[in-house]
Amino acid sequence: MKHFNFPGSRVVKTGVAIFITAWICVLLEWPPVFAVITAIVTIEPTVSDSIRKGLIRFPASAIGSAYAVLFISIFGNSPLTYSLAAVFTIATCFKFKLHAGLLVATLTAVAMVEVIHSNYLISFFIRLGTTTTGLIVSTAVNMFVLPPDYTKDIIQKIQGIRKKTGIVIEKVFQDILQENDKELETTEQNLVDQLEKTIHQTETLIRFQKDETKYHPLVGTEKDQFQSAQDHLFKLKLIHYHIDNLINTPLKTISWSKEERTIILKAVSELAYSLQNKTNYTSGKHQQQLKQLTEIFWDDNEDITKNNDNHPTTFPPELIILYELVSVYNLVERYYKKTADSLQR
């Protein structure tokens, strides 16, 4: 089944749901306003959310309608009726944890005050009918009209995260090796925070897509792309974790020689370059850089143990930096290996 996902698709679906809902209510000679309100708020990002929240909104709307009828019969059309209907509806919805239906229930309660003048019981059941109509129509529209597909958005965001990760890695390691402490506390943290925000947004889209697959399963290449995207995001999150460790770890004076710094900076630049543009990644070159970093790591580790009678209780900054960098190198290798495996399927 072909999916559609373009800006404004939810607006289109909302318009279609309103039209169909109002048309049905007019045919049944029911006031459309309550059904339309329900239809508007029931168009969710996924069909699963529409159904799940719809099951909450129906009893919530029934509560709002019941309170409206009750207080109209006691106080008539008065300011007290509006306030009591709203307050009791909100309190009851909170009591029964019907949070998703709170808005539509309260709107229904206060809107009913104006239109009910007699036949309170019949009016109550009509409101239930209009609410049910809005829920069913909007859920059906969400399922069959422009069904959402977030796969392309997810892939685009992951590509953006990968490129930004390359920029952040280069900036962080350059400032660490050049010992620019002030910049580390500001620019890098802002970049990492922006990256984390984008990762969370992508995770939300993945959750939406997982929910959507219950009703519109992905097949073939789309399914493979979605699974690959989840794996890629997981590895990028781990890379983000290692970068965050570096920024939040106090690093004292680094005792590397100029030659060692040059090797590490070159490795960082190559790594950042390969993340910013996947065509620049080559397995052989990546392995060569990783080997050089690993050799420096073990040499530093050996020097520390030889030059100290007692082993230090904390890791020296050189080992911390190299450990995080080697970890990122390994994650990038796995990231691109997964990409290559996906293309070969």
Rank of each mutant, 00 (worst) to 15 (best):
H200I: 13
K157R: 14
P148L: 03
Q174R: 12
I90H: 08
T131L: 06
N119S: 14
F125V: 11
V87W: 04
V172T: 13
F96H: 06
V115A: 13
L98M: 13
D149V: 01
K157T: 04
T139F: 00
T165V: 05
V137C: 02
T131G: 11
L103A: 15
L177K: 04
D181Y: 15
E170L: 05
N190E: 15
S123F: 07
T130A: 12
T202V: 04
F88K: 04
K171L: 11
P79G: 05
Y150A: 04
I161H: 03
E179M: 05
E170F: 01
F124Q: 09
I90K: 08
G166P: 04
I199S: 01
F144R: 01
N180H: 12
L121D: 11
V104H: 09
T81A: 07
D193L: 13
T186E: 11
V172Y: 03
Q201L: 10
T92D: 07
V192Q: 08
A111C: 14
V172R: 01
Y82T: 07
L80T: 12
I154M: 02
I126L: 13
A105C: 08
V168H: 07
T89V: 09
M112Q: 15
M112C: 10
K152W: 00
L177Y: 02
I116Q: 11
I169F: 05
L177M: 08
R127E: 13
T165R: 03
F144G: 04
Q159A: 05
D181F: 12
K95L: 15
I167S: 12
P79Y: 03
S83V: 15
P147K: 02
F124D: 09
F96I: 09
I158Y: 00
K163H: 02
V172M: 02
N142W: 03
V87T: 14
M112F: 11
F88N: 08
T130E: 15
K197Q: 06
I161R: 02
Q194A: 11
P147H: 02
D149L: 02
T165A: 11
I167W: 05
F94A: 10
L128C: 14
L184K: 09
T106M: 10
E196W: 02
F173A: 01
T131M: 07
A100Y: 08
K164L: 07
G101W: 05
D193Q: 13
Y150K: 01
I126R: 14
L121E: 12
A91H: 07
G129H: 10
L135N: 05
